[in-house]
């Protein structure tokens, strides 16, 4: 594992604050009789960039929602900076920002107002201070010209960048990304991966990325976890991921198109 820096640098004030860690302990989650997560355990060190991979429907996004407290565990525990992630106070004590898969931008607001909402609602600064902060976040993501646009006027890649900029304005100690490169062309996917890695390198924010993008995991992560069918099948470094021992993991990472014996015919209905 890479040597984890112990402080996070604020992108606006450049003040150093202790980086936060995340621990998932024996986490189980069921919706009715359907078990989505089965005894999942792992930890993310302060300042680390951890990529959680897995096929669609494997429970990655549900796991992410447990970390930000949007879902409550059926059993087990998730802690952020040694505080219970399910407790409302944790969100007040630890600044966590989640970049949603579809951006989750507020459609009735301009890009500027989307970014200004958090500092305005939490009365972090006066309007001039908020403007400075928002424009700095837009500048970091090369979005200065999009400030007055509405989300409906943006391309998919720009929406993702605005969502990252909005997360950045929260001055997060923990950044979470839900499928940041999905629905993007390869170049834009690489751009987003570069942004995630750059933000992590410059500000040393603990980062958890949920994705099924192999290139992203191999190139920017300190460690990778692979979740399949609600179980964590692999936990290791990108180097270890290149030579997986579990055949299910190997098949997920390097799927061969088999026209003689197609997978869809073996899927359960």
């Amino acid at each position: 594992m890479a040597e984890a820096p112990s402080t996070t640098r604020n992108p606006f004030t450049h003040v150093e604050t202790p980086a936060v860690g995340v621990a998932v302990e024996d986490l189980c989650k069921s919706f009715g009789t359907f078990e989505v997560l089965k005894h999942v355990s792992f930890s993310v060190a302060p300042g680390e960039i951890f990529v959680l991979m897995g096929p669609s429907g494997s429970g990655k996004s549900v796991l992410l929602k447990h970390i930000v407290g949007l879902e409550l565990p059926s059993s087990g525990r998730v802690t952020v900076d040694n505080r219970d992630a399910a407790a409302e106070e944790t969100r007040e004590q630890v600044r966590m920002a989640l970049v949603f898969q579809a951006g989750a931008l507020f459609n009735s607001m301009t890009v500027y107002d989307n970014l200004a909402l958090y500092p305005r609602e939490h009365r972090i600064a006066d309007e001039a201070g908020i403007r400075e902060k928002v424009m700095r976040a837009l500048q970091i993501l090369s979005l200065e010209n999009a400030a007055e646009k509405f989300p409906s006027e943006l391309s998919g890649g720009m929406k993702k960048r605005v969502a990252i900029a909005r997360a950045l304005v929260m001055e997060p100690q923990l950044m979470l990304y839900d499928e940041p490169t999905s629905e993007l062309d390869p170049v834009m996917s690489a751009t987003i991966a570069e942004i995630i890695a750059t933000l992590k390198d410059q500000y040393r924010v603990t980062t958890i990325v949920v994705s099924h993008d192999r290139d992203l995991a191999l190139n920017i992560s300190d460690r990778v976890g692979i979740l399949m069918g609600g179980e964590l099948l692999f936990l290791g470094t990108p180097a270890e991921l290149r030579t997986p021992t579990d055949p299910r993991v190997a098949d997920f990472l390097n799927p061969k198109i088999d026209l003689q014996n197609p997978r869809f015919k073996k899927l359960e209905t």
Partner: peptide, 12 residues
């Protein structure tokens, strides 16, 4: 479209 979830993660 997860705007409510976004508000909650922002502690708003």
């Amino acid at each position: 479209y997860q705007e409510i979830d976004a508000l909650e993660t922002m502690n708003i």
